[in-house]
Design a protein around this nucleic acid. Structure first.
Lengths: 223, 223
DNA sequence: GCATGTGAATTCATTCACAGCT
DNA sequence: AGCTGTGAATGAATTCACATGC
């Protein structure tokens, strides 16, 4: 049913962050639709469930190919698979986690990761009391051997969940091991070489958005 | 030293998400600069530390007032306070957390929250084994009394960290208690009334960005 | 008739460039 | 001289609107 798929060209560079973000959301919605036994879905429905516009949905998808049928909509299952393949979810990724504190522990047992092919192969810490022990079913390795083991295990993505003060050191090791894809949970601005892709998640910043919204609301009421 | 502060008008509606996001980042940078004993900072320096342009920094700040001195830059301490007040970080917020699983537990002990005035007053769960017990220094309440207790404790922000299947039910309770600001960690699209501000954090989605970047890189190399 | 796919039009965000102040 | 603050210019993202195909 899918008409064609655009070749991946240099244009891929031009796909915006927000398009990728929305593709992730469409993916989730499609998983839900499939569970609800929908066979097809219109851009209108896909938009409604995510509070976007139908045109936005169609435009986003059109960057990657022509997946729908005029008059009918998009085939749920095929579109889901297609987006999975665009996002690289149709394979598994070797992930390592550095830091088994509060956040790290939560991430180890976060089901969504494995469900989407992100396999946490190895966990590192610098705490002697944790090293060599099992932590939620996974052996904790010594962070001193980080670089060596990242290479050995062909790790592709590293998640950093150490205190802010330690994070930059970990980056140096990770980069030296040739891993250039990092997800950072430490609340600090990390410096990375140009060829390294870094994303930082700061949960406090999410609350700050809400706090801004609350503050603004208060102020507007005062008018 | 700060020249003037713009009145908060209906224009506040027009401040974009990304400006708020960057204000959060400036705030962190200013905290760092203060620790490094900087008295003033230029838009150039503020930009460099966050990989933005100086013009972007100045434009962002100009939406809220005129905080700098021509020829000199911005006073670090005052600008920090000013941004704190814009983001609503100059007061404390009463926060409740629903769900003390992996993610919930991590959030309870996440230091950055309290440091920025987000006080977790109460924690809820539906697991009888947890209810009534201390969990990292905080008593776990029964989620059955959620709405009542949110009101009693004047909770302003609710963090949802329950399984996806339970999240929508929690939203209903939260909304019925008159709380209209929610941070959701459940990996699902929640529906909320128009007057409720909802932000969803999905850690798997962050990994998907990286997976896309890796996939794209592979494809581009193939050309 | 219905819904996609996409250029054109529009809206929104960023950057430029310079007047104005210290 | 140095750096802000901001309209004007540019660039990016979104939405419109309609031709196209089922």
């Amino acid at each position: 049913m899918i008409k064609y798929v655009k070749e991946f060209t240099k244009e891929m560079h031009r796909i915006s962050e927000s398009t990728i973000h929305r593709l992730s959301l469409y993916y989730r919605t499609l998983v839900g639709l499939q569970r609800e036994r929908h066979i097809t879905v219109s851009s209108r429905e896909l938009a409604k469930r995510n509070k976007f516009t139908p045109a936005q949905v169609r435009k986003d998808l059109s960057f990657f190919g022509s997946f729908g049928t005029r008059g009918l909509g998009y085939p749920v299952s095929e579109l889901k698979d297609k987006i999975a393949s665009i996002l690289g979810l149709n394979k598994t990724w070797n992930v390592a986690l550095v830091g088994v504190g509060n956040v790290g522990s939560a991430l180890v047992s976060y089901k969504e990761f494995s469900r989407q092919g992100f396999i946490i192969k190895k966990v590192f810490d610098n705490d002697q009391r944790k090293i060599g022990k099992n932590h939620k079913g996974i052996l904790v390795s010594d962070v001193r051997y980080l670089a060596r083991e990242l290479k050995e295990d062909k790790i592709e993505i590293v998640i950093i969940a150490v205190p802010a003060s330690e994070a930059q050191k970990v980056v140096a090791e990770v980069v030296s091991a040739g891993v250039h894809t990092i997800l950072n949970f430490a609340p600090t601005n990390l410096k990375v070489p140009g060829n390294v892709v870094l994303r930082t998640v700061n949960m406090a910043m999410e609350l700050e958005h809400l706090s801004f919204a609350l503050t603004k609301r208060g102020r507007i009421k005062e008018l």
